[in-house]
Every structure is written in structure tokens, then in C-alpha cells.
Computed example of a mutant assay.
Amino acid sequence: MPDPFDPTKLVITKAQAADRAAQELERDRAARTAQRHQRAQPVPASLIAALTGEPLSRAERQVARVYANAWYLALRRWSTREVKLIGSFHYDDRDPTPDLLLFGNARPLPTVYLATPAGEFDEANVGRLITDMTRSGLTETILLGRMLERLRRDDNGCMAELLRPDMRWHQHRERAIRYAVAVLTLAVKLGVQEAESPLQRVKTELAALAG
């Protein structure tokens, strides 16, 4: 009958118990590490998009940046075209023959159009919108309006472009994004629907930067 108090067996049994304890400790440590890793995983972009409605893909962010930069360049250049209208045709439905109605003494009536990525807009109307922004009751809108005023005057303090050649923001990133918000806000006020989504995306970037 084996001696239960055999010193050799006692040493072996003790070593086996220590091994089991070490294995249990390692398994417990691995489980805790896995839990921490799981908690540290970023929220999937698809889930964020579903919750916020903001697509977060790199390509979509770049599209928004490029679109904002196009508006920035257009407003910085402030390229205009003058159209002189001599008169207008007016006709009555009952009379198919058009009558030419002259304004005053038929002097040309100039209308100046501003070129933008969304087409041409009445320059006077664009100027009024910018002025209205500077007189807004909201501080943020006032600041955006003032940025647009500087851009319209082609102030020397304005950046040449908002983006670097690799489509990243200018080195003064926050300033570039704020200008992007300013020009796209103006675009939306002009009724350009395609500017709405890029505006929300650059606003999201600005909020992330500020936060």
C-alpha cells in the first residue's frame, strides 16, 4: 500500500497544485485582459453612422473638404460677370405679339453675377447675406460672417487654400475648418442643397477637434 506521507510524492503533489494554481491565475488574467480589450474597441463607424446619420468614411470626409475648398477659392477670387439688360419682353396672353418695354430711357441695367461651384449668383444678394450674418444675434454666425467679409476683400491674412496637396487640412487646421464652415454656411443660405451634407461633415470635424 503506497505511503501517503511519502516525501517524494508530497513534493510532486505540491508542485502539481502550484501548476494548477498558476494556470488558473493565467486564465483569469487572460479573461480580464480580453474584457479590457473588448471595452477599448472603437465604436464601429457603421453604428455611429446609424446613430448620428453622419457617414464617417475617409473618402466622404475628403469629398466634403474638397467641396468646401472649392467654395473657399471661389469666394476668395470673387470672380464676377456683368450683364447689362436693355429692356424686357412683355406680352399678354391674349396678344401673341410681344411688346418691348424699355426701362426709363433704355439705359442698360447692370446685373453682376458671382461665379461659384454651384453656378452664378447675384453678387448683391451674396453681399447682403454676408452682411446679414455679421449683424446676426448669434455670436457664432457673426464670426462666420466676419470671416466671409475678410475673404471677400481678399485679406492678406486669408489662406491661399484650405487643403494641402494630400487632401489634409491646412497646417492651421482649426482655422481652415472654420473657414470651411463659413463658406458652406453661405452656400446653404444661397439655397445650394448639395452643400448641406458637406457642411454637417465639416461641423462634425470641428466639434471633434474642439472636444
Rank of each mutant, 00 (worst) to 15 (best):
G191D: 11
R164F: 02
R128V: 04
G191V: 10
Y179P: 00
V183I: 03
T134N: 05
T116N: 10
S136Y: 07
T116E: 07
P108N: 07
D93Y: 13
K203L: 08
G87N: 12
A187L: 04
L163P: 15
A115R: 09
C158Y: 01
T97C: 07
R76C: 02
L109E: 05
S88N: 11
K189S: 14
G137N: 12
A106L: 09
D122S: 10
G87R: 15
E196K: 04
C158K: 02
L73E: 03
D166S: 14
L206Q: 05
R168Y: 00
L102W: 15
C158V: 04
S88M: 12
W71H: 05
T80P: 01
R152H: 14
C158G: 02
E82P: 01
R135Q: 13
Y179V: 00
L102D: 13
R175Y: 03
L129H: 10
P108I: 06
V183A: 02
L199D: 02
I130T: 07
A176V: 02
A187H: 06
I86M: 10
L148V: 02
S88I: 05
T111Q: 08
Q171E: 13
G157Q: 08
S79K: 12
S136C: 09
M133E: 03
I142N: 12
A115Q: 10
T116P: 13
W71C: 05
T134D: 07
E161C: 12
F103D: 07
G119M: 10
V181D: 03
R81G: 01
G87V: 01
P96L: 06
M147V: 01
M147K: 15
E120Y: 11
V188A: 10
R201F: 05
E196S: 10
A68Y: 01
A118T: 11
A187Y: 02
L109D: 03
R94E: 15
E82W: 04
V192F: 06
H90Q: 13
H172Q: 12
